[in-house]
Design a protein around this nucleic acid. Structure first.
Length: 657
RNA sequence: GCGCGAGUAGCUCAGUUGGAUAGAGCGCCUGACUACGAAUCAGAAGGCCGCAGGUUCAAGUCCUGCCUCGCGCGCCA
């Protein structure tokens, strides 16, 4: 973590590191040529080695040609004593290890564990995620996108940023047109007949899309009709446009319902139809030409096109406007990115689309109204898009630079991640066969066009059913409503953790056994830990003790009484406390690296420590009040930290499970 | 061909800007439910971190080359 990233260092571990850095720097700057940034603290690999470690004697040894261990010893002599630090020692070949004063540090951590201590760096951040073509049911690949995007939103908001969650809807694109083609030409249905289709419309279209794709591939002559439909849809001519509108909006509702199941939410739904209607592209086109970012090609293979030079490849030019005058995908994306930064100097109009999580979700429109809403205009933009689009995202950023929007280009972040694929075994389980070209591969790419994939709702249904069966086993006396509520919370926890536990560059080869597991490193394990901890406090209160809130009032924010504890117990307690103290530091690292597997791993490890702790140290049965109090404080801190971490991952904590 | 990503335990994966003895889950093997709930815990076994060089006091981590795999590189989106 860079020292100047806008943190207030009130979080115990961050604050401690920063305070120590200042003190150490002040005491050493006369004797050695040091910068404060040379004094970064590491965490020693083992608790017995200390709590924080300095390694700069090694770097210094090189400069002044001295033995690092001797330097470390000299440094130690110059440091004297430091408030909050119990002792320091030289270890290994030249590490300086710090041992913190435990009772005071514990008190600080617990007292500050409810306050947010980070500070925003941006005026406004846009996170665009989910972005499913509204022509078929959502599948597991889309779930990965939404889980990553929604977690990023949650973490940024936790940091204090103002965040706008956008879900871009390509409601006039070729994928929707394929479905319109299918309805009109294959099924010969009118709008009224399509409207009358009962049941899960997104599932219906899933099949129709696969069927239509195959038909179009087998019948090249049908392309003419498809092109005709595309034109009609883009220009708002009925009946094609009305059908496209019905299909896209109805499926969009289905997608948002699916995402609500995993508690992924959005503020605004910008639509391609509105971009067309508002003539955003024409505006961007003007800017690109005016600033010389694109140029017209007179001859050669790209004759008649407007193209952009690519920075890395001098001989290559990316086509932005085709020779027939139509704009390419990447061109539209540049216009859209300009809007996100407020660089088009115009905005859509907005209408309420639905209410989710008690908040109105707005959809864009080109039709003026008096709602008076404004979106876009961010200072930083994250686009959550899978890694296959890295090249195009690079071109978009380059487009900004070509327009001399260097600051915005720097803050256009492609949050890329690997796709979700299917194992041959899961294909078999779905009753699907791999396409001929995929035979013999170790995995098969999910493909909406081929109808190959695990639908998001199907997976959530299976998770919920399995969770319900487990709840029935353990809590048969609960009401049916309670049981289903718990089951859906567990399903959500399992799904969200599953999607977060892998690094973003890791290809997930989807396997039902892995995804449906509730044991080991899974969401339900984390939820179970939180539930068990909660039940300790519930039991305490039932047996006439204080409530969780009452306990904290009794303790105040002061140092912990640890003198009655055996050394081994202090070591275990200290392990939990120092790990919990790293909470916000870990979030900053996760945001910085866009690796939410890091956050997931942190929460999981915290659970392992907590589970081990309360197994080893009974709380309620402990008769020594001081020991009992220390244990209660530890699990209070651990539980709170866990709940906060779970919330950032969108994982709920049920009452029981 | 060029670009990007990956190769760590039987399997699936972690491994903060280079730091001290490379970790976890699953699976396998031993144990622990009359207890604050066993969706748990305690313990055992399991590694030339793809290969070869290099930089460094220190390399799974950085550099170079090679091997293997995946994904991109369209007047599709």
């Amino acid at each position: 973590m860079s020292p100047n990233s806008g943190i207030m260092f009130r979080t115990p571990m961050l604050k401690t590191k920063e305070t120590l850095r200042q003190i150490v720097f002040e005491r050493l700057k006369e004797a050695y040529a040091l910068e404060p940034s040379d004094l970064d603290f590491d965490h020693p690999p083992q608790a017995k080695m200390g709590d924080l470690a300095l390694t700069f004697p090694f770097q210094l040894a090189k400069k002044i040609k001295a033995n690092p261990r001797r330097i470390a010893q000299d440094v130690l002599a110059k440091l004297g004593t430091i408030p909050g630090v119990e002792r320091m020692e030289v270890a290994g070949a030249g590490f300086i290890n710090f041992f913190l004063e435990k009772p005071a540090f514990c008190g600080d951590v617990l007292a500050s564990s409810q306050t947010r201590t980070l500070r925003p760096d941006e005026a406004k951040i846009i996170v665009e995620h989910t972005n499913i073509n509204p022509n078929k049911a959502a599948h597991i690949g889309h779930l990965r996108n939404a889980c990553l995007g929604d977690t990023l939103v949650r973490c940024l908001r936790h940091k204090g940023e103002t965040v706008e969650a956008q879900n871009y809807i390509d409601d006039t694109g070729v994928q929707v047109v394929d479905i319109v083609f299918g309805f009109l030409e294959l099924e010969k249905k009118t709008l009224a007949e399509v409207e009358a289709i009962p049941g899960k419309f997104d599932y219906y279209c899933w099949d129709l899309y696969a069927r239509t794709s195959k038909y179009l591939a087998d019948n090249p002559a049908a392309q003419a009709r498809k092109a005709e439909i595309l034109k009609a849809v883009e220009h708002g001519r009925d009946p094609e446009a009305a059908l496209a509108r019905h299909v896209s909006h109805r499926i969009l509702r289905a997608h948002l319902a699916t995402m609500e199941r995993i508690r992924a939410f959005y503020d605004v739904l910008p639509c391609e139809s509105s971009i067309l209607g508002m003539k955003f592209w024409e505006r961007a086109y003007g800017l690109l030409k005016e600033k010389g970012a694109i140029y017209h090609v007179a001859d050669g293979p790209n004759a008649g096109c407007w193209v952009m030079k690519l920075e890395d490849e001098a001989d290559k030019e990316k086509i932005i406007v085709r020779s027939d005058g139509t704009v390419t995908y990447v061109g539209k994306d540049i216009a859209y990115q300009l809007w996100k930064f407020g660089l088009l100097e115009r905005d859509f109009y907005y209408e309420p689309f639905l209410v989710a999580d008690g908040k109105t979700v707005w959809i864009s429109t080109a039709t003026p109204n008096a709602n008076g809403l404004a979106f876009g205009g961010a200072t930083k933009v994250y686009n959550v898009i899978d890694t296959r689009q890295s090249y195009l995202q690079k071109v978009v950023v380059q487009g900004l630079r070509a327009l001399h929007y260097d600051a915005q280009a720097k803050k256009s972040i492609h949050f890329s991640y690997e796709m979700v694929a299917l194992s041959p075994r899961s294909l078999t389980e779905l009753g699907l066969d791999a396409a001929p070209e995929d035979e013999g591969k170790s995995f098969v790419e999910v493909s909406g066009r081929k109808g190959l994939g695990v639908k998001a709702d199907d997976l959530l249904d299976r998770l919920t059913a399995k969770a319900l069966a487990e709840v029935e086993k353990r809590n048969p006396d609960l009401s049916p409503a309670q049981k289903t509520g718990i089951a859906s919370a567990i399903a959500r926890g399992a799904l969200r953790y599953f999607m977060l536990k892998y690094g973003r560059n890791s290809l997930i080869i989807f396997d039902f056994d892995d995804a449906l597991s509730f044991e080991g490193e899974t969401g339900p394990y984390l939820q179970y830990t939180a539930v068990r901890l909660a039940s300790i406090f519930r039991k305490l209160e039932e047996r006439g003790g204080s409530s969780a809130a009452g306990l904290e009032a009794e303790w105040g924010g002061g140092a912990w009484p640890l003198s009655s504890l055996a050394a081994y117990e202090i070591a275990d307690l200290w392990d939990v406390v120092t790990y919990a103290a790293r909470f916000e530091e870990e979030i900053l690292i996760s945001i910085e690296t866009l690796e939410f597997s890091h956050l997931a791993k942190y929460a999981f490890l915290l659970c392992q420590k907590l589970n081990g702790y309360y197994h080893k140290y009974p709380v309620l049965a402990e008769e020594n009040e001081e020991i009992k109090s220390a244990r209660l404080r530890t699990i209070t801190l651990g539980r709170r930290t866990l709940i906060r971490a779970l919330d950032l991952m969108g994982i709920p904590v049920p009452e029981k499970m």
